[in-house]
């Protein structure tokens, strides 16, 4: 298997690198009481790239918002430890230092997160200026980061406005804003979903190179298993607000243990080969408000039994990976 050295490298990262972010028992609920995210625990090591995967209503974006306390209307329980310090207990002022400082943020929709009446340069420099960096130094660093993200005439383009940029360039600006203050962790929520496939590949390659250069940890939120397979070291799969599986990218694609992960992987059409029939998962993803009792996936699961209907399966560690299922695959299932 040609991937063996890569796999070993990924495991080495995990074993050697210290923990950067540890989320423990994170629950997020609306004031009315519906838990959008229910007891999520995950760890990101230094330099590690974790993909948080899920469909609509899975709670993957809410998890990211909660980690950064971006939505003050949500009730957040649990702990989010950044280098051993619980950032959920920080003051709003200290939290502002973490956001954009230690943790950078990039969203999918560039037109929403970029200000149409501010120049691109001012927007990229803003997070530095807030932190007391001088005007000239901020400009120098803005040019440096855009250049590293593949914008060749960065110095000339800082005075431009967003509408003068193409979709791929806008997304680079969004990434530059998130990365200019040299954060340890980048949280990227569907950063390439709105882009055409060739531009998506360019942006992903740039991000890949940038992360390698700076030993950046990345929490990549996506629904696209192709992007997961080409970018992530580890994959956390969410369904209806809970983690159902957490494994290295190789383990997950080669031998998914949770029936939902298996269904998800089998449902993807492939561009590199012709197939006869896709194995579709019956039903639709359930929004948290309609989450059934027991395992949230049981109404769509072929393996469901009585215990699945009544008891929420705990997220159990087995052989260096985690799965929350009463009947996880134990045979050598190969989905790929």
């Amino acid at each position: 298997m040609n991937a063996a050295p890569d796999l070993a490298a990924a495991e080495a990262v995990e074993a050697a690198a210290p923990e950067l972010l540890r989320v423990e028992g994170l629950s997020v609920s609306l004031p009315g009481g519906v838990a959008l995210v229910d007891g999520v625990s995950l760890t990101i090591h230094r330099g590690e790239r974790v993909a948080l995967v899920g469909e609509s209503g899975s709670g993957k974006s809410v998890t990211a918002q909660a980690v950064l306390r971006l939505n003050d209307r949500l009730r957040i329980d649990g702990r989010v430890m950044l280098d051993g310090r619980d950032i959920l207990s920080l003051s709003e002022r200290e939290m502002a230092g973490v956001r954009g400082g230690r943790i950078g943020l990039a969203f999918q929709d560039a037109m929403v997160c970029l200000d149409p009446i501010m120049t691109v340069g001012d927007q990229i420099e803003e997070s530095l200026r807030i932190r007391g960096v001088g005007r000239a130094e901020a400009r120098r660093r803005a040019i440096a980061i855009l250049t590293e993200l593949g914008v060749h005439d960065a110095a000339d383009r800082l005075g431009s406005y967003v509408h003068e940029f193409s979709g791929g360039m806008r997304q680079r600006v969004v990434l530059a804003m998130a990365l200019v203050a040299q954060p340890d962790l980048l949280i990227a929520d569907e950063p390439t979903t709105a882009l055409d496939v060739r531009v998506q590949r360019q942006v992903l390659d740039l991000l890949d190179q940038f992360a390698a250069n700076h030993a950046l940890s990345v929490l990549l939120i996506t629904h696209d298993m192709g992007i997961v397979a080409s970018f992530a070291d580890r994959v956390v799969v969410m369904y209806s607000g809970r983690i159902v599986e957490d494994a290295s990218v190789f383990d997950l694609f080669e031998r998914p243990l949770h029936p939902y992960t298996q269904g998800l992987l089998a449902a993807i059409p492939r561009v590199d080969r012709s197939q006869d029939e896709l194995a579709a998962v019956p039903g639709s993803p359930v929004p948290p408000a309609l989450r059934p009792s027991g395992c949230a996936f049981h109404p769509r699961c072929a393996k469901a039994t009585e215990v699945c209907r009544t008891e929420v399966p705990p997220l159990e560690t087995m052989g260096g990976r985690r799965v929350a299922c009463h009947h996880p695959a134990t045979d050598g299932v190969h989905a790929v």
């Binding site: 298997m1 040609n2 991937a3 050295p5 890569d6 490298a9 990924a10 496939v197 060739r198 998506q200 590949r201 992903l204 890949d208 190179q209 390698a212 250069n213 700076h214 030993a215 696209d224 298993m225 192709g226 992007i227 997961v228 397979a229 080409s230 970018f231 990218v249 190789f250 694609f253 080669e254 992987l265 993807i268 492939r270 561009v271 590199d272 790929v336």
Partner: peptide, 19 residues
């Protein structure tokens, strides 16, 4: 076609090294 990410981690190139 070359740009489409393939959902198979064994098909990806080795991880980039710092430039």
């Amino acid at each position: 076609l070359a740009a489409v990410p393939i959902p198979d981690p064994r098909r990806r190139p080795p991880r980039r090294q710092p430039a």
